[in-house]
Amino acid sequence: MDKWEDNRAWWLVVPVFLIVAISAIIPLMTVVNYSVQDIFGPGQRVFVGTEWFKEVLTDRRLHEALGNQFLFSGLVLLIEIPLGVAIALAMPKQGWRASLCLVLLALPLLIPWNVIGTIWIIFTRPDIGLMGVAINGLGLEFDHTAAPLDAWVTVMLMEVWHWTPLVVLLAYAGLRAIPEAYFQAARIDGASAWATFRYIQLPKMRGVLTIAVLLRFMDSFLIYAEPFVLTGGGPGNATTFLSIHLVKMAVGQFDLGPAAAFSLIYFLIVLLFSWLFYQALQNVGTGDKR
C-alpha cells in the first residue's frame, strides 16, 4: 500500500482546540492583556510592560497574604491527609455501618461553601454560638473576630471539618480496592499492623492520595468563600488569603492591571506546586531515578 500523507487529520482536532480556546485560552489572554496595560476606561489605555508585575511582586500586603496562604495550605495538607487516612482505616469495611459512615462523612461536602462560613460564624460566636460559649465557659478567652489566633483556629477547624471527608472517601476507596490476598500474605509473613500499613496499604493508596493531595492543595490555595464569610480576612489582615486579597484589589479598588498581573503569578504558583506534588508522589518510595 502506498503511503500518502496530508494534514487533513488535523481537522479532527479542531473542535478540541475551539473548546479549549473558549474555555481557557481566550479568558487567560484577556488577563494577560490587562496585566500589561493601564486601563482607565473604554478606549483609554496605556501599555505599561512589566510595571504591574514589579509592583505586585514588591507589594508587602501581598507577601503577607502569600505567607498566610502557604501556612494555611501547609496546615491543611498536614492535618487533613493523615487524619483522612486514619479515619478511613478505622471505618467499618462493609455492611450498614460502612454505608452510614459514608453518608455522615459526605454531608459536609454537600453544603454550599458560603453557607459553611455562615454555619461557623454562628457556631463560634462568643455570645450565642455553641462552641464560642463553651470555650468561654471554660474560662478561655475566645473571639475569632478579635484575636488573630482564634480566627486561624476557627478557619482551620472549619476547613478540616469541611474537607477531611473528601480525603476519607478517597482513602477509603483506595483501601477497599486492595485485593484480600495482600492481607492474607501479610498475615502469613507475620507482618505487624504497622508493617501491613507501611508496606501494603500506604503504597497501594499512592494513586488516591496523589489525587487527594492535589485536590486539597489546589482547593485550599484558592480558598475564598468560607473565610470571606467567616472572618472577611480579618482581624486586620490575619486571615487574608491570596484570593481574598485579589478580590479586594480587583473589585474593591478596581486595580485591574495589578490584579491581572497578580492572577497570572497566582496561577503559576498553583501550577508549579501541583506539578511538584505530583512528581514527588509518583516517585516516592519507588526508587526510580530520573
Binding site: Q184, A185, K204
Partner: peptide
C-alpha cells in the same frame, strides 16, 4: 505455613531482597 496466591503478592516499595527478608525480619 506459607501460601502462594493466584496473583503475585509482592511488597511494591521494597527491593527483591527486602521482600524475601520480610517474613524473617517480622519474626
Amino acid at each position: 505455613i506459607a501460601q502462594v496466591f493466584q496473583f503475585p503478592v509482592i511488597y511494591d516499595t521494597m527491593s527483591v531482597f527486602d521482600n524475601l527478608a520480610f517474613p524473617l525480619r517480622n519474626r
